[in-house]
Structure formats: C-alpha cells, structure tokens
Design a protein around this nucleic acid. Structure first.
Length: 682
DNA sequence: TGTATGGTAAACAATA
DNA sequence: CTATTGTTTACCATAC
C-alpha cells in the first residue's frame, strides 16, 4: 500500500516537469490528490514531458540507494586498498591478510554480474537465477560493507590503543573524548552498514518479505559452512542467534541513518567515481544525492546490530527495549576491547570465507553459463538502459524501474567499469536486452522464450515479491489471468487483482498498467467481452490469441534460426524449467484449468504457454504450421485443439499450406463458438 | 525503410 | 457527480 501510494504520487509528478526537481516531484504528487483517481481521469497534461518526468520520478529513490551504495562501496574499496597496500596500523596481521584475501574474490565475483544490465540479467536469467545473482550481489555488498566496517573498527581500535599507550599521561578527558569520537565514528559506520543493508533489502527482491529479507544474509552463511559459523561464535557462550533480518521491510529505518549515511558518503574523494556515471534514466548522478536525502525517510530507531529488541552482536542476545538502551548496551558491553576486537576478527574470517565461497560459486555459475552456450560476449554494458530518451515512454520507464529493483551492483558498475573481468552474456540474452540486434529481443523473449504459465508457475513467488517487470506482454498476462480461473472468465477488476496479486511490479504505477490492461482488452480480438448476469466478464479466444502470434516458427527459416539461437538461454531455461516441472503447467493444473468442458474456444493454455513459441523443435517446426508443433510437445491435451488450430493456420496466411483442411468455418464459426455462449444477445 | 507488435498516454463515451 | 469500464487514437520503441 505504501508502495502503491508512493508510486502514485510519483506518477502524478509528471506535471512537475522534468523531474529534475526530484524532490519537488513528491510534493506534486501529494497535491495531486486521490491516487486512485489519478488512474482514469489522468491529467491530460503534456504527454511527453509527463513521461519523462515519470521515469525520472520513478528512478529517484532507487538512484539514491544506488548512489549511496556505490559511494559506500567506493569508500570501502579505497579503504581496503589502503589497508592492503600499506596499513598504518602496525602489527596486525589479520587485517592485512583479510584485506588482501578479500579483495580478490570481491573483484572477481562482483564483476561478472555487474557487467550485465539489470535488463539483461532479467532477460537472460530466469528469476531463480536472477534471484541467486541478486543475492550474491547483495551478499557481496554486505560483505564489503562488513569488511569495511570491521576494518574501520579494527583500525580505530588500534589507533585507540596506540593513543592510549602514547598518551597515558594525557589527561583523562582527552582520552575520553577521543574514545568518544571513535565510538561515534564506529556508530556511524554501523549505521552506514545498516543503511546499506536496508537499501539492499529495499531494492532487492527480498524487500517485501521479512523472511526472505533475511535470506541473502542468512542463507549464504548457511550455505557456506552451516556448522562453522555458529561455532565460531560459540566462544561467546550464547548460541548464535538467528541473523534474522535486522531490518524489516517498510522504509522503516531509513530515516535516522540517512543523514549519517549521506554525510558519510559525502566526502568528495568518494563521489568522483560515481559522478561520471549516468543513471539509467539519463539523469546525471548529480541529482541523486538530493533525492537521497529526501526520499529516504528512515526511522531514527534502527541499528545494524539491533533487531527484534535484542542485540545482534555475535553471541550476544541481550534484550534492549529501545535503541537508546541498545546503544548504551553497545557502548558498555561491546566497546573497544580485546574481546570485541577478537570477535570482529572472527567475523572477518567468516566474511572472508563467505567471499571465497562466493567466488567459487561465481566460477561455477560461469561454467554453467558457458556450458549452456552462453559464451561470454563483448561487454556492452548498460548501453541501453542508461541512455533512454527522456521522453521515451513505457520502456524507459520499465527499464528504469526494473533496474531499481536490482541491487546496486547490477546497475551501477563503477567497479565493473574498471574491472577487467569479462562478463558472461548469453547471446540470446544479450540480444534481448541490448538492442544491439540479436535475434531474440525483449519481446521475443516474451513470446518465445518464456512460456508464461510454466514460467509463472516456476517463478511465481519471485514475481510476487520482486519488483521486477515480468517478461510477458500484457496480452499474455491477461490471458493467463483469465485462463487460470475455473470459468476462464474474469471481470476487469479481477484481472487487476490478479496482476497485483501475482506481480509485485504491478503494485505500483497502477494507472499506467491498468490503462494498458484495458487497452489490451479492447484492442486484441482474442479478448472477448461477455455480458454476464452480474456484469461483464472477459474471456479469451484462444484461437485469436494464437493468431496474433507471428508465424515465426513455421514461417521464415530465419525466424526459426533465430529462435534456435535466441533460445540459447530463455528457451533453454524455459525448457529446463519445463523439464523440471515435468508436467509443464503447474498453474494450469488447478482444477478449473484442465476442465475440458470449459469454453469452446479455449484451448488448453498449454499450447502457447508451454510450447508454442518456445519450442524449438526445428524438425517440423520450419515446414509445418505452428499447429503441428503443439501436439508434439504438449500431450494429449492438444489433440482436441486441432480443429481450432487449423483455423488459425489459415489466417496467419503464412501460406503454410493448409495442414488441417478440416477447418471449420472461418471466423464466423469461431465467433459463434465464442460468442454464442450467450454473449452478444444480451 | 517499411511493417508488425507492444507499451504508454490520453481523450472520450457509457455505465454504475 | 464521480469512478469505473471500454473504446479508440496517437505516439514511440523495438524487432524484423
């Protein structure tokens, strides 16, 4: 809800002009009034400008997050570099070791995914994979931050010790002040850490679910060495408390730390790396900082080491009623002493191990991708998403928003830019997201590479929680929504609900996509409006739907070829998933779905969803009409459709020869079938 | 370059 | 009167 309203406001921002005044954007939205109303009536204001503003507005929050994260990372990297090269702190082997050890994996592991644009990632990778990558990224970020934090702490500790020794004779006050300063700095760092954690969670797919939120942080360690980690802390006495998500969704804790984080990131030396970099929406990064501060309303009462009312310091589960108490506890129980330092070291080791593990996993991933014919290709990072035309409509926006949802690493490549590592980019994928001109492009992927129902079935959790635009067309989504119901009919509102229920992405910008839904319903013949007792419902004319589809498979050999090549990932993935799923359509298995008696024209969705487009089977595919293909892949279900299919064939005109002469009547029949069921008459 | 498809914005009408 | 639902047109982007 919060999200929605927020987006709405952003959306209404268009009137606010260029969105340059990012901050003002919100104000505009606020004045806009009823969010819901915004949907239909719409402003009627300048369109293009509106679009531009829109996209900008949408970006802002994410930009801020990215910006902050990048800055923090930069800081962390620089710091690590410093540490590695010549650490001022004498006699601390650990720090040096860890620093150097850490750097390698980080650079290696982080690079590859970063080279891909979020879109690419999204296109190429299946949601699970995406999620995994994202998690990796998040984990990495966190690790880096942790690392940085630990380093800082350690260094501070060392400095403190040094000073204590050197200045033993100094008045106690001075020492106390210094210590206080250190503590504060420490605190700051902790807050920074927390901030980024929040950011990550906020952006990440996990942001919406507390349980999942803890996932990346929690799961990774488990994966790495389930047993080791807890043991590491055993010395502390207390059993390793569940990492939990120290942070809960909602923008909750972003306020208090925001200032800290911002100020912290402010140092000029840090910002440069970022400045050269343009944001996806084309806006210079310069803008982000402002939004940063503005958009982040974080609750003052949060701390990385404080969650669920208890201290999250490793091995410490002390209950603290509020942040103040916790801070007190932190300063007393976890001050800069040997024990804390030692614990930090242990934590560092943990992080280190995780990074190593991450590097291994990354390697494995690369190998897997390579094996799947996703040869690493020319690095064309961010070509598209980063330079969308301001006025450009949907896509730029889509792109942007999609990017938002990704953890920083994917979108902002300050590191990657410098990184030599070659990214893996599946051809199909690359082409998909990069307009550079591969065979399979974004839309293609919709149709060909991702059987919507199986894809949805497999990843429905992902789309449900991740604010990622589903790679399907509105038409296919609407169809899916309708077909998922027992009666295969839905009211408009129910369709809306399905969208919002199934996709986190559609929980925002409601005006936009709802309009698109209506537009699609009206525009496409495949959607038939039926007057019902209680109103109008929408049904799907499967034949019409199939008709819409370009005669690719069957038709031009080039298309087929493209398909196959484009298949590289998407289709492959799809088929892989399908294989895993065995019965291709879990979703469809719902009682209503398979019901044979349902609407006449309604083909078992299976066809399109599963195979039609995606199926590469070249053998027949090229020469025979699309209709034939379905039976091959999909099972008996298809048989029934044959007649219907035949009709389709004729229409596509692709002159594929009438494989099924038995075609019933022309369009009329179809209509009859569809409409007769008591529609038009009323 | 032209065409097809898809997404978005918006105007407008009909209806609840 | 307002909000919702539908229809339609226009524009843009992408893919072929």
């Amino acid at each position: 809800m919060m999200v929605e309203s927020a987006s709405e406001t952003i959306r209404s921002a268009p009137s606010g002009q260029n969105g340059v005044g990012s901050l003002s954007g919100q104000a505009d939205g606020g004045s806009g009034g009823g969010a819901g109303a915004a949907g239909t009536a719409g402003g009627g204001v300048g369109r293009d400008s509106a679009a531009g503003a829109d996209s900008n507005g949408e970006m802002s929050p994410a930009d801020l997050l990215h910006f902050q994260q990048q800055q923090a990372l930069q800081v962390a990297r620089q710091f690590l570099l410093q540490q590695a090269s010549g650490l001022s702190s004498p006699g601390n082997n650990d720090s040096k070791q860890s620093a150097s050890a850490v750097q390698v994996p980080v650079s290696v592991a982080m690079m590859s995914p970063q080279m891909l644009t979020p879109q690419q990632m999204q296109q190429i990778l299946s949601p699970p994979q995406l999620q995994a990558l994202l998690q990796q990224q998040q984990a990495l970020m966190l690790q880096q931050l942790q690392e940085y934090y630990k380093k800082q702490q350690e260094q501070l500790h060392l400095q403190l010790l040094t000073q204590q020794q050197a200045g033993k004779q100094q008045p106690k006050e001075a020492l106390g002040n210094k210590q206080l300063a250190f503590q504060q700095q420490l605190l700051q760092m902790q807050q920074l850490q927390q901030q980024h954690l929040l950011n990550l969670q906020r952006q990440g797919l996990v942001s919406l679910q507390p349980n999942q939120a803890s996932g990346p942080l929690q799961a990774l360690p488990q994966a790495v060495c389930p047993t080791d980690l807890p043991q590491l802390w055993k010395g502390e006495g207390a059993p390793g408390q569940p990492p939990e998500d120290s942070v809960k969704q909602e923008g909750l804790d972003l306020t208090g730390t925001a200032t800290t984080a911002t100020s912290f990131a402010a140092p000029p030396k840090v910002s440069p790396p970022l400045s050269h970099h343009t944001l996806p929406n084309g806006q210079p990064t310069v803008l982000t900082p402002r939004r940063d501060s503005s958009s982040h309303e974080e609750t003052p009462g949060s701390h990385p080491l404080y969650g669920h009312g208890e201290c999250k310091w490793p091995g410490c589960e002390t209950l603290c009623e509020d942040l103040g108490q916790f801070i007190k506890h932190l300063n007393t129980e976890h001050a800069l002493d040997d024990r804390s330092t030692a614990q930090c070291r242990v934590q560092m080791q943990v992080v280190q191990q995780l990074e190593i593990q991450l590097a291994k996993e990354s390697e494995r991933l690369q190998a897997m991708m390579a094996h799947l014919h996703m040869r690493p290709s020319e690095p064309k990072p961010f070509s598209q998403p980063l330079n969308p035309v301001p006025g450009s409509s949907s896509f730029s926006k889509v792109t942007v928003s999609a990017a938002d949802s990704f953890p920083d690493g994917l979108v902002h490549p300050p590191t990657s830019a410098a990184a030599p590592v070659t990214p893996l980019r599946p051809p199909g994928l690359g082409s998909a997201s990069l307009h550079s001109g591969g065979p399979a492009r974004r839309r293609s992927s919709d149709k060909f590479c991702s059987p919507i129902s199986s894809e949805l079935a497999q990843n429905h959790e992902f789309y449900k929680n991740a604010d990622v635009r589903p790679p399907f067309t509105y038409a296919s989504l609407i169809r899916q929504a309708i077909l998922e119901t027992p009666d295969r009919q839905l009211t408009l509102n129910e369709i809306y609900n399905w969208f919002t229920r199934m996709f986190a992405y559609f929980r925002r910008n409601t005006a936009t996509w709802k309009n698109a839904v209506r537009h699609n319903l009206s525009l496409h013949k495949c959607f038939v409006r039926v007057e019902n007792v209680k109103g109008a419902v929408w049904t799907v004319d499967e034949r019409e739907y199939q008709k819409r589809r370009p005669p690719k498979m069957t038709g031009s050999p080039t298309l087929v070829k493209n398909m196959i090549s484009g298949l590289s990932y998407g289709a492959l993935n799809a088929s892989y998933q399908a294989a895993l799923a065995e019965s291709s359509f879990p979703l469809l298995n719902s009682p209503g779905m398979l019901n044979p008696g349902s609407a006449s024209s309604l083909l078992p969705l299976s066809h399109d969803d599963v195979g039609a487009p995606g199926e590469p089977l070249p053998s027949n595919g090229s020469s025979s009409p699309p209709r034939l293909s379905p039976p091959q892949y999909s099972h008996q279900v298809q048989v029934k459709e044959e007649p219907a299919e035949a009709e389709e064939d004729r229409r596509p005109g692709p002159a594929l020869g009438p494989p099924n002469p038995s075609t019933t009547g022309p369009a009329e029949d179809r209509d009859l079938e569809e409409e007769l069921p008591g529609e038009e008459l009323s």
